[in-house]
């Protein structure tokens, strides 16, 4: 032991852990006990508490439950006023995306998932389904019109819809709307029967795993957010940490979600980018704690270590006492 200790010390200039004396310790037994304990705990917790599985919202369930919100959202996708339509990268060039100071990372990486909301969410799904002549005519009329004309139609219909409290059935017909009400009424019908869920997903082909289009359409409406808000999952409710019902959530995201609650993050147009920037810096700092003056000294200042190693320090004091009491020419050694 001592030979090995000597050579290792000479190389590392660090105390060999075993030079402090050693005792039997069965690592494999410890691991086995730990594994059995964790398994038992897991089986027990799962049996007692189960796990949450709240049904997803479908375009169909949304359109059936809230046809007004669906119609308003579809109109916003058509006239380009929805959140997705004005999002910017990576979906379109309608905006520059968020910045951290002068750093426009989103814009630099560009439009990688192009989405044309009018085409992808409204005109495409209408055009790909077999339609009655009225709808076909309306679709041709809309697609053949100038964008100025389209804006006049959708603008007039939008105003009328707002006046009617968002209920499309209460909007009296008017030539000012052009083909807009016919198109939106048909899209609502397709949505309520569930075919829009399929149409949005299948735009890329037969096999499909990318839910970007249906998810963005849902998120542009207000029902998804309303349900989340009701369940305390919104960003301004520390929602990232939370889970539906009374289940624990991702509590480890506490710091991430914390920034969204305070100034300047909670009122900045670049909140997401700023929070991400902040968390990247803090994560780097966490990884590099051993190199950060001050932070790396906290363990010496907070005497938790004295609790952890209290037996070691007690032994040390005991030996110090023996050494000062004993003959001076016999140095006390520990465990050798």
């Amino acid at each position: 032991m001592s030979m090995r200790t000597m050579t290792r010390r000479a190389r590392t200039a660090e105390p060999d852990p075993y030079s402090y004396g050693s005792r039997h310790y069965d690592l494999v037994k410890e691991f086995t006990i730990a594994l059995v304990a964790v398994l038992a705990l897991t089986f027990a917790l799962a049996a007692v508490f189960s796990s949450p599985d709240e049904k997803p919202m479908t375009i169909a369930s949304w359109a059936k439950a809230d046809p007004g919100d669906f119609t308003a959202t579809a109109l916003a996708e058509l006239d380009g006023s929805s959140a997705t339509a004005g999002y910017g990268p990576p979906y379109n060039a309608a905006a520059d995306g968020q910045k951290i100071g002068p750093l426009a990372l989103a814009k630099a990486l560009g439009v990688t998932h192009p989405i044309d909301t009018a085409q992808d969410f409204v005109l495409g799904p209408l055009g790909s389904a077999p339609q009655v002549p009225d709808v076909e005519t309306a679709l041709k009329q809309y697609q053949g019109a100038s964008s100025d004309q389209q804006t006049k139609w959708t603008g007039a219909y939008s105003d009328a819809l707002t006046k009617a409290g968002g209920d499309p059935t209460k909007v009296a017909a008017s030539p000012d709307f052009g083909p807009t009400p016919v198109l939106l009424a048909q899209l609502l019908k397709q949505a309520q029967t569930g075919s829009l869920d399929g149409a949005l997903l299948s735009e890329g082909g037969f096999y499909q795993t990318d839910y970007t289009l249906p998810l963005l359409f849902l998120a542009d409406g207000s029902d998804l957010a309303a349900q989340a808000d009701n369940e305390h999952l919104s960003g301004d409710q520390w929602g990232m940490m939370n889970e539906t019902g009374n289940f624990p959530g991702q509590a480890w995201l506490w710091l991430y979600t914390f920034w969204y609650q305070i100034s300047p993050y909670n009122h900045s147009d670049n909140a997401d980018a700023l929070v991400w920037g902040t968390m990247m810096v803090l994560t780097l700092a966490f990884v590099l704690v051993p190199f950060i003056p001050g932070v790396r000294s906290i363990p010496r200042l907070v005497p938790v270590y004295r609790l952890i190693w209290r037996e070691h320090y007690r032994d040390q004091r005991e030996q110090e006492r023996l050494r000062t009491a004993g003959p001076p020419d016999i140095p006390a050694t520990d465990g050798e």
Partner: peptide, 28 residues
């Protein structure tokens, strides 16, 4: 969801202290 002895699917319980909002489950 399979019936569990302790049903955590009801409306969530939340605590508020100023800017801090925390679910009882996470607090536990």
């Amino acid at each position: 969801p399979a019936a569990a002895p302790v049903d955590l699917n009801g409306p969530g319980h939340y605590l508020h202290w100023g800017v801090i909002q925390l679910s009882v489950a996470n607090l536990v």
